[in-house]
Amino acid sequence: MTIETRLAELGLTLPDAPAPAANYVPFVRTGSQLFISGQISQTAEGRITGKLGADMTLEQGAEAAKACALSLIAQARAACDGDLERVVRLVKLVGFVNSTPDFTQQPQVINGASDLMVAVFGDAGRHARSAVSAASLPMGVAVEIEAVFEIR
């Protein structure tokens, strides 16, 4: 089964690969590694903003992380000239959660992205990961996640 077929079976539609918001590139390929710049929590309807532990629930945070994961996959597809079958595996995710000082469930928020990656890529979606708190994120978004993929 192809990655595109899996996405369709899961009812997921990838957004267009988001353009950079500042002076950086969306991804860098070096050898078989693909580094994807941080993708913020946004959907076609707009940015998902808020602060976990204040005005967002854990479930809303996990949905925000899922939106980041879809953008990461869209960037990977763009980097692979439209061919997600070139993805060998997801190596690592680094997730930042806009949260209050007493909020301690950053790993559960980033699970929204991790679970989606495993659903889409199967065992090749299992990855190393960091999930950390941030006092603030660009444009007030709830979550930002960056990724490293191995590609052919």
Rank of each mutant, 00 (worst) to 15 (best):
P15V: 08
D16A: 15
D16H: 14
D16Q: 11
D16V: 14
A17Y: 01
A17N: 11
A17H: 06
P18T: 09
P18R: 09
P18F: 00
A19F: 12
A19D: 05
A19K: 14
A19M: 13
A19T: 12
P20M: 14
P20H: 15
P20A: 10
A21S: 11
A21K: 05
A22T: 15
Y24K: 07
Y24R: 13
Y24H: 15
V25I: 14
V25P: 00
P26C: 08
P26E: 09
F27P: 07
F27A: 12
V28C: 04
V28P: 03
R29T: 08
R29H: 06
R29M: 02
T30Q: 08
G31C: 01
Q33A: 09
L34W: 10
L34T: 05
L34M: 07
F35P: 00
F35D: 00
F35N: 00
I36N: 06
G38H: 09
G38W: 10
G38R: 05
G38I: 14
G38V: 10
G38D: 05
Q39W: 00
I40P: 00
S41G: 11
S41K: 07
S41P: 11
S41V: 10
Q42L: 00
Q42F: 02
Q42A: 12
T43H: 12
T43Q: 04
A44N: 05
E45V: 05
G46A: 07
G46P: 08
G46L: 12
G46N: 03
R47W: 06
R47G: 01
I48P: 06
T49V: 15
T49L: 06
T49N: 04
G50R: 13
L52S: 10
L52T: 13
L52Q: 09
L52C: 13
L52R: 13
L52W: 04
G53W: 14
A54N: 15
A54I: 04
D55W: 07
D55F: 11
M56S: 07
M56Y: 03
M56G: 01
T57P: 01
T57A: 06
T57W: 05
L58Q: 12
E59M: 13
Q60R: 09
G61V: 12
A62F: 03
A62M: 09
A64P: 09
A64I: 14
A65L: 06
A65Q: 04
K66L: 03
K66E: 12
A67H: 07
A67L: 08
A67W: 03
C68K: 07
C68E: 04
C68V: 10
L70K: 04
L70R: 08
L70N: 02
S71P: 08
S71E: 12
A74R: 04
A74L: 03
A74K: 02
A74M: 08
A74T: 14
Q75S: 04
Q75K: 06
Q75M: 03
A76S: 03
R77A: 10
R77W: 03
R77I: 03
R77L: 01
A78L: 09
A79T: 09
C80G: 03
D81A: 10
D81P: 01
G82I: 06
D83H: 10
D83K: 14
D83T: 07
